[in-house]
Amino acid sequence: MKNWHWIILGILFLVTLVLEFTYLADYDSHWWNSIPAFYALFGFVSCIVIIYFAKFIAKNIVNRDINYYD
């Protein structure tokens, strides 16, 4: 990842924030829409949760040597 990659992603994120606060202020069909940048938080937290949860399961329960069934 080069610097300009990060800059593009950052700009894109800013655009979504601007859109969220200008166009979607009255959007209230779900309870979470009142939380600012909810989807960003949700995405980040979910990602971390999935990785750690999967690692936990893998380490403690399901991972076996590749020749386990042979």
Binding site: L9, F13, Y39, A40, G43, N63
Partner: peptide, 29 residues
């Protein structure tokens, strides 16, 4: 907004923790 925010932050999460996802020779039961 929904999908872009989710995807961007998923990418951020992945980049932070990408070493945890590296390949190993295992099978998952």
């Amino acid at each position: 907004v929904e999908i872009t925010q989710i995807s961007l932050m998923t990418f951020a999460g992945f980049w932070l923790l990408r070493k945890k996802l590296a390949g190993e020779l295992i099978i998952a039961l």
